[in-house]
Computed example of a mutant assay.
Amino acid sequence: MTTIYWFCLGGGLAFSLLLVLLDGLLDGALEALDGAIDAFDIDGVFDPLSFVAGLTVFGGAGLVLDEYVGLGTTPEVVIAAAVGLVSAVALHLVYVKPMKQSENSTGFSQAEYVGKTGEANTSIPASGYGEVVVKMGASTTFQTAASFDGSLIPDSTPIVVVEVARDGTLLVAPLTQEEHSPLAEAPPARLQTGV
């Protein structure tokens, strides 16, 4: 049993060291391990990091129990497995789960472009493609665009996205000066008379 403990401890430590040294290269290995663990996943509890940490702690606890306690093989394995499982769950609850919940996504769907305003970055010919600049949240995006009504849209013209084509091209229309003005959004002022 000592060999299995050493294998778990050494393998976990080696994997952790490789993870630190070759962070980007091991992403594929972690995804493969994550796929294998998904078969046993109960409500997102198991993940590769927690699993490897649990195996490492199992190996270390087994070696300590075998060397210093001498309970016998079965009790040692049960206790080492329990310590490894508790460690894996604790790591998941204290570190992995909060980190996953704190991840932000700046992604957005193509459908969210409809109604957004921007500016023609390059001229959009009547029957061709150009480029527009549209702000999406804190991001500025450059997108391929075509004229919605088939009219020429010169560069630097304020535009509005009317539709998104199936291929992802934004169909845009030019904004007139009144439509683009902040005053156009405000309701007209009314003259109040005291009667």
Rank of each mutant, 00 (worst) to 15 (best):
S151L: 14
Y95D: 07
E112S: 06
V161M: 01
G137E: 03
V160W: 12
A165K: 07
V114P: 01
S127R: 09
L175H: 08
G118Q: 09
V134A: 06
T141F: 10
P158H: 15
G168F: 03
T117M: 11
G137I: 01
T144A: 06
V160F: 15
Y129T: 11
I124H: 05
V161Q: 01
M136V: 03
G115C: 13
V94G: 13
G118L: 02
Y95Q: 09
P98C: 04
T141M: 10
A173P: 08
M136S: 01
V162L: 13
A126K: 08
V161E: 02
F148S: 04
V161N: 01
L152M: 09
I124E: 04
A146E: 10
A138N: 02
L171C: 06
L170R: 02
V133T: 13
V94E: 05
M99H: 08
Y113L: 07
T144Y: 09
P125S: 04
A146N: 08
G130C: 05
Q101N: 06
S151N: 14
S123T: 10
Y113G: 01
R166C: 06
S105C: 01
S151Q: 15
I159K: 04
G168L: 00
V133Q: 11
Q177L: 14
G130L: 04
S123P: 11
G128D: 05
T169R: 11
K135M: 14
A173L: 09
Q110H: 07
D167L: 03
G115I: 08
D149S: 12
A126T: 07
G118T: 07
L171M: 13
K97Q: 13
Y95S: 11
A138G: 07
E119G: 09
G168K: 01
S156A: 14
G107F: 00
T157Y: 04
F108K: 00
L93I: 11
K116N: 06
Q110A: 15
S139E: 05
A120K: 00
L93D: 12
M99A: 14
K135N: 09
G150I: 10
A126V: 03
T157A: 15
A165W: 06
V96K: 08
K135F: 08
G128Q: 07
S109Y: 00
G128E: 03
S151A: 11
L93W: 09
G118V: 06
Y129S: 10
G137R: 09
M99V: 12
L171G: 05
Q177M: 15
F148T: 01
Q101H: 02
Y113H: 00
V160Y: 11
P98E: 02
Y129Q: 12
I159T: 10
S147C: 03
G168S: 01
N104M: 14
L170M: 02
F142M: 08
L171V: 03
Q110D: 12
I153T: 04
L152V: 14
P98L: 09
L171A: 07
A165E: 13
K135A: 05
Y129C: 05
V172A: 11
A165Q: 05
G130V: 06
V161T: 10
S139Q: 02
V162Q: 15
I124S: 06
E131D: 03
I159Q: 04
A146H: 00
M99W: 14
Q110S: 13
S105H: 02
K135L: 01
K116C: 08
S156R: 15
T169E: 01
I159R: 07
G130W: 00
E131V: 11
G168I: 01
S156V: 14
T140S: 06
I153R: 05
A145L: 10
D149E: 09
A138C: 05
V96Y: 04
T169A: 06
G150E: 03
T141K: 09
